[in-house]
Each structure stands twice: as structure tokens, then as C-alpha cells.
Design a protein around this nucleic acid. Sequence first.
DNA 1: CCTTGACTTGGAGCGCACTCCAAGTTTGTA
DNA 2: TACAAACTTGGAGTGCGCTCCAAGTCAAGG
Lengths: 141, 141
Amino acid sequence: MTCEEFSIKEAAQLTGVSADTLRYYEKAGLLDGISRNVGGHRRFTSTDLNGLRFVVKLRLTGMPIREVRQYVELVRQGDHTMDHRRSMLQSHGDRIRQQMSELSRCLEVVEVKLEMYDLGLRPTDEHDCTKRLASLLEGTK
Amino acid sequence: MTCEEFSIKEAAQLTGVSADTLRYYEKAGLLDGISRNVGGHRRFTSTDLNGLRFVVKLRLTGMPIREVRQYVELVRQGDHTMDHRRSMLQSHGDRIRQQMSELSRCLEVVEVKLEMYDLGLRPTDEHDCTKRLASLLEGTK
DNA sequence: CCTTGACTTGGAGCGCACTCCAAGTTTGTA
DNA sequence: TACAAACTTGGAGTGCGCTCCAAGTCAAGG
């Protein structure tokens, strides 16, 4: 059992966000119960750090601040909010999968466009891959 | 050969962005040479529409406005900028792939967290999937 | 004790990508 | 020809997520 603690700067380095952002997150209610030493400086425990790392994942996947705050608030309220939290994470998982398939569709378009460049084709050419691009863009498959 | 043309409202519906956004994109240099009818109203050709659809894909995948503008400007400058454009699209493709793998890593975390909820576990439990979550968060694989 | 650097707070400022508004013009239908 | 709906422009406003700043406090080495 480790009881190591970290300054805000260390916490920032360990989670890949800036110290300013950490203060902002705390103020915004995304971080629960970060304790202070006698001088009022924040001390991040490794538990805090893992909570923070999860918050960072939610943010990286586009969950809005206000929704992360709601999730953290539900955690704070205790076990009776588990169903609610689970359904939030389930919807968020769905959103992530949607983002991924959107990205994948767009990537295909970019790759077909690159194929055109590699073949030295203009968009007006009557070529298989030009047509493929057009139909991808029009969404007419 | 079709020579159909579209109003700004129709163009908006056909590409999934608002008419306001279309005007904004034109002002910002993301749309090249949208012509007007006698009364000064925009007329989108299907060529315009496909250019626009490509711009929308770039935006959907997070390319900043200023970079899309640069790409469009290079297109306008003609064939001698093809190498430059190709390399822009190649880097952007790389960025899209990075986004996708980031999303995929984050999705794994969310899914393991959900597994914990389904098993009724708290983050402090000494359980296989709790540990898996912790090591995913710490990135210690 | 003194200094230097890290930390604290509240609040202002910023960059981005829209989004909306006002005032006027054009278009299409009755 | 009258009128509503759709369009035009320039510019202001909005929401988001930080990011920076000033003024002061705290911590650690010499």
C-alpha cells in the first residue's frame, strides 16, 4: 500500500494536462475532494490521479465538461446512483463508437482522394476511383 | 451531364451544415468560386457540392478552418501544388488514424469501467477487472 | 533570515467555430 | 402588383475549454 502524494505540477505531468487545467477542472467540479497540505497546496493521491485519468479519458472522447461534472457528482452521491452512472457510460460508449465510424468513413474519403493524387487524376476525370470518390461524397454508395 | 443548381438552403440540406455555416465558410475561404444569379443569390453546382462535401469531411475529422483554407487555396493555384496538397492529406490521414486509436484506447477504459459496474465493484476492490482498469489508466499495461 | 521558485486565488482574456441579428433586396405565388 | 418567404451583407454575440495574469503565500536550500 503506497501513500505517495503529488504536487499539482507532478499530477499534471503524470496525466498529460496542464496545472492550469487541473485547477480549472477542480473549480468546475470535475475533481472531487483534492486535499491540501498545511500551506494550502494541493496534494494528489494516487487514487485522485486515477480518478483524474478517467476524467481525462472522458474529455478526450468529447464528453462535455458539464456532463463529466454530473458523472463525478453522481459518484460523490454514493452507490444508489450506480444505475444512472452506468447508463451514462453506456451512452457515452455508443457515442465513441459513432465517432469512430464517422472517422473511418471520412478516412476512406481522404484515402481515395490520395489515390487520385497518386494517379495524377483531376476530380473531373472519368476514372474508376474518381467515380468512387464522388459516390462516397454523395453518400450514394 | 446534369447542370442542376441549388440554393444555399438546398446546399445546406444536401451536405448537413447550416446555411449560416455555408456563408461563414465562403467568407473564410473554404469554398471557391460559388457563383451568383442575377439577384446576387448563391447558386451551388453539383461540383461545388462535392467540393463542399469534401471540406465537411475535413472539418468532421478536426482539420482546423485555417488549414482547410490553405488546402482550398492550393487547389485554386493549380496543378503545381499537387505535391503539397498530397502531403497535407497524408498528414491529415495520419492524424485521423491517431484519433481513432486514441478513441479506441479510451473506449476500452470505458468498457472495463462498465464491466466493473456490471459486477457491482468499487474502484478499491481487489478484483481482476479493477486491476485491469487501474493499469489501463496508469498506462503501465 | 533571505532568496528563489512553486504554489494559491479570483478573474480576465483568448481562440475557435459557429450562430444570430438587422436592415435591406430578390423571388415566387396569388 | 402585392406580399410572404428566402436571400443578401456586415458585424455582433455565444459557448466552450482552456490559458494567462496579478498579487500574494508557502517551501526549501544556502
